[in-house]
């Protein structure tokens, strides 16, 4: 009886540790299911959000470029430029070959706007041009707290420039509504993630406990009845084991991080079932900032 309780305690402990390892990986906001429009500050109406989402989807289909709008309440004490860059890189806006991503970030509390331009778009949108567009198209509206108009005008200006850069006629009106992508509630997805994590944690914890017990009482687990077997037969088995080594070759030549704990990589697209996601675009700090 006591053993069972101990076992359960260990199991719970390891489950918690396991979950914690994953939860505090990143400290910036994560993309919503819509990816192209993420209104964390809660300042944009449905019409603006639909406008951005539909146009961005159309743009991505036609040119491969991705334009993402993010609004946040505050920058969590980070510098605007660093926050925007981390966000753009982590989300992987734009395609990895062309690096044609563009991020429009609005920070409400700091009253700042930043446009981060991917490497592939720097040719047509150099820093001074971006700055001028921000000052002409965004800042006047943002100063009056007219977020919806400001975002729409600013967004449309960049959209037009990217279309003309790619020599593609800009569509007059995008009337397709991609409602199918917004049907899955984001909170539901999170619950599913948590459940999966807990399941993995329980399995992991269980496996660990089994291992611990096995090491403590090796007799119970690894009793091999060798009474009737000739010693030579055992040695013969050893020879045939050599073939199995091939599995390890690739991993030994590649990373070589034998002693390192695995470093975190990727943008977490593993969990993004449905919706949109970034393609891993390159950002090197191109773009401009503005105050309002």
């Amino acid at each position: 009886m006591m053993n069972k309780i101990k076992f359960a305690r260990i199991l719970v402990l390891f489950s918690i540790m396991f979950v914690f390892c994953f939860s505090c990986a990143k400290c910036i906001v994560q993309p919503t299911n819509n990816f192209y429009i993420n209104d964390y500050a809660g300042i944009l109406n449905q019409e603006t959000q639909d406008y951005v989402l539909n146009n961005s989807v159309a743009l991505c289909e036609k040119t491969g470029a991705q334009v993402v709008v993010v609004t946040v309440k505050n920058l969590e004490n980070k510098k605007l430029e660093e926050y925007a860059l981390d966000l753009a890189r982590n989300w992987g806006i734009g395609s990895s070959e062309k690096g044609n991503g563009l991020l429009i970030l609005l920070a409400l509390q700091e009253r700042k706007v930043r446009v981060e331009v991917g490497k592939g778009l720097e040719g047509c949108l150099n820093d001074s041009k971006v700055k001028r567009i921000i000052n002409d198209c965004g800042v006047p509206y943002f100063k009056k707290d007219d977020w919806n108009t400001g975002v729409k005008v600013l967004y449309t200006e960049f959209l037009t420039r990217i279309y003309s850069e790619c020599n593609i006629e800009m569509p007059e009106e995008v009337d397709k509504v991609y409602s199918s992508y917004t049907t899955v509630d984001n909170s539901m997805k999170n619950i599913v993630k948590v459940v999966i994590f807990v399941l993995i944690a329980i399995v992991g914890g269980f496996a660990f406990c089994v291992l611990v017990i096995a090491l403590r009482k090796p007799k119970d687990f690894f009793t091999i009845h060798t009474y009737g077997i000739n010693r030579n037969d055992i040695y013969d088995d050893d020879d045939s084991d050599d073939d199995d080594d091939d599995d390890y070759h690739d991993s030994y030549f590649g990373g070589g991080g034998f002693w390192d704990s695995g470093s975190s990589t990727g943008s977490g697209s593993f969990w993004d079932g449905g919706g949109f996601s970034g393609g891993g675009g390159d950002f090197f700090g191109g773009g401009a900032s503005g105050d309002f």
Binding site: E81, L85, N126, D127, S128, V130, K131, R132, F284, G285, G286, G287, A288
Partner: peptide, 18 residues
Amino acid sequence: FIALTDELAGTENRIAVA
């Protein structure tokens, strides 16, 4: 001059990133 200073500010940021 405005364009040049904007480019300069952008380049300073690029240097910081690099």
